[in-house]
Simulated scan of single mutants.
Amino acid sequence: MITNENKIKIFLVDDDALFLKSLEIEFLENVNFTIETYSTGELCVENLSNNPDVIILDYQLDGIIENAMDGLKTLDEIKAFNPKIPVVMLSSQDKIEVAINCMHHKAFDYVVKSETAFVRLQKIITTIFKYQKIEKELSWYMDRM
């Protein structure tokens, strides 16, 4: 039986309410996830003490509030709070410069919003947890040397 402690907590942050809801529904179909959704970067940052395992963050974030914190500023705030939280950036912009810029701000990965975005996000989340498991095992091993 899977308890809440065993579930992966994901923050979904997007100002596009329809996209946010569809992403939430897709993730909730997987019993291994608990989801918190936020429509602004500010709300995401205010709730970082809820300890998300992964954050999926929209690049733009300017659709609801004028002068709202954009995705990169939100990413910087997340990394200042806890640099170990993996953040996957989402954008409708299929531009390499945008992806590179996100990586410079320490995003784990960059996904273009499309029909295949959810499948890509699932694969990335799996990769994140495999990587973290290897890191823990390596750390354990190094401590014993």
Score class of each variant (00 low, 15 high):
124 I>D: 04
73 K>Y: 11
108 F>N: 03
37 T>G: 06
105 H>N: 12
133 K>I: 12
32 N>I: 09
46 E>Q: 02
130 K>G: 02
98 V>A: 07
57 L>T: 03
84 K>Q: 15
123 K>F: 14
122 Q>N: 04
49 S>A: 13
27 F>C: 04
83 P>G: 00
119 V>C: 01
62 D>S: 13
111 V>F: 11
98 V>H: 04
74 T>W: 02
112 V>C: 11
94 D>E: 12
24 E>C: 03
127 T>S: 05
111 V>D: 04
98 V>E: 04
45 V>T: 08
31 V>T: 14
75 L>M: 06
91 S>C: 12
80 A>N: 13
2 I>C: 05
12 L>F: 05
96 I>C: 13
5 E>Q: 10
17 A>E: 09
111 V>N: 04
65 I>N: 11
81 F>I: 05
58 D>I: 01
40 T>H: 10
95 K>G: 08
114 S>I: 11
120 R>I: 13
98 V>N: 07
36 E>H: 13
139 S>N: 11
17 A>F: 15
18 L>P: 02
15 D>C: 08
54 V>N: 07
25 I>S: 08
82 N>P: 14
142 M>K: 08
26 E>K: 15
30 N>S: 09
10 I>M: 02
13 V>M: 07
69 M>Q: 07
144 R>A: 08
57 L>Y: 05
10 I>L: 06
52 P>A: 02
130 K>N: 07
3 T>P: 15
72 L>S: 03
96 I>Y: 15
17 A>L: 11
120 R>N: 14
18 L>Q: 10
4 N>R: 11
54 V>G: 02
68 A>P: 12
119 V>K: 00
118 F>T: 06
118 F>M: 01
65 I>L: 12
40 T>M: 09
13 V>Y: 03
131 Y>V: 01
